[in-house]
């Protein structure tokens, strides 16, 4: 593995909880180059030849294995679009840990656009964890526009756990999941914006197959003058179940639009959406203050729990 600076190591900790070289398969991308890669017996990582990015090929029957594919950008003004394809065979059970950290100490924009496509084979289970984080004292913007397309074969399951921690000036997320019969997805989105940041999240969940199921839970905190727009949409094309829940804590002079949509082409589709936007409840703050916390400590505690 290439030698990483303290700043880069810190970013790896933030986005992938990595303190050392991960076990199993991994690919660490730094400023557009591979800073370390390992394929395992069952998980093969190969560079694309026609465009930037990698193919991650997981053999059928691979169980209890993980892949780490963190991306870090520490060079100010660096922009990239990266294509990663995940081909997960049948009957797998794997954990994929992605994440992007941008440290921008200069005044030029740094940007990572990650285009991820997942093909999840029959009866496979995938847990996908993604954290986005930005820091650095520079004035240059830190931008991330992830696009994630997932195809779930029959009986497949994917849990996507995505978190934007702090420091991302602008993000436009697009997530599309297509579900075959008996497949299921659970999407947990956590997002925090502050200062003048902007975040857009569009999701399209297409329940194509009989007895497919989708649950979307989006929790966000909008602080400062930041702006957030949510557009989760669940489409039922067969007997299926879909539930969308968007819940936002709004603070200061932030602006939030939450527009969940459900569409049904089938009488047996059971689709529900809920959305709520509100400030931190005064009695929650008071309760923690009666236990000795300052107002600010109480606020921080409530927010960190909400986004936990």
């Amino acid at each position: 593995m290439a030698k990483l600076s303290q700043i880069e190591l810190n970013m790896l900790r933030q986005i992938a909880d990595l303190h050392k070289v991960p076990e199993g398969a991994y690919n660490i991308r730094r400023n557009g180059e591979s800073a370390g890669r390992n394929s395992s017996e069952n998980i093969e990582i190969v560079s694309k030849t026609d465009k930037p990015g990698i193919d991650i090929i997981i053999k059928p029957g691979t169980k209890n294995e993980s892949v780490h594919i963190p991306v870090i950008i520490s060079k100010t003004g660096y922009s990239e679009t990266v294509y990663n394809d995940f081909i997960v065979g049948e009957d797998c059970d794997v954990l994929i840990i992605a994440g992007c950290g941008i440290h921008n100490s200069g005044c030029d924009t740094s940007k990572h656009d990650g285009v991820h496509t997942f093909h999840v084979g029959k009866n496979s289970r995938v847990k996908y964890v993604e954290k986005h984080y930005g820091d650095g004292e520079g004035t240059g913007e830190k931008i991330m526009n992830p696009q994630t397309i997932v195809y779930l074969d029959e009986g497949a399951f994917i849990e996507m756990d995505t978190t934007q921690i702090r420091g991302v000036d602008s993000t436009h997320r697009y997530t599309r999941i297509e579900l075959a019969a008996g497949s299921e997805t659970l999407l947990l989105e956590k997002l925090m914006t502050h200062d003048r940041q902007k975040a857009d999240s569009d999701m399209e969940i297409i329940l194509n197959g009989e007895d497919s199921r989708a649950r979307v839970v989006s929790r966000s905190v909008a602080q400062g003058e930041s702006e957030q727009v949510f557009h989760p949409s669940v489409v039922g094309k067969a007997r299926c179940f879909g539930h969308v829940q968007c819940d936002t804590i709004i603070m200061d002079s932030a602006k939030v639009r939450s527009i969940p949509a459900i569409e049904s082409d089938c009488v047996d589709a059971q689709l529900v959406h809920e959305a709520a936007i509100g400030r931190i409840a005064g009695d929650q703050l008071l309760k923690l203050m009666t236990l000795g916390m300052s107002e600010q400590e109480a606020e921080e505690r409530i927010i960190s729990g909400f986004l936990k």
Binding site: A281, L291, E295
Partner: peptide, 24 residues
């Protein structure tokens, strides 16, 4: 004194209608 200061001095109060929290 504020609520916090009174709490630290040794006053406590169990709410008639306690609040609920998401994530605590």
């Amino acid at each position: 004194l504020s609520v916090t200061e009174r709490a630290r001095l040794g006053i406590s109060y169990a709410f008639q209608h306690p609040p609920r929290f998401k994530g605590l």
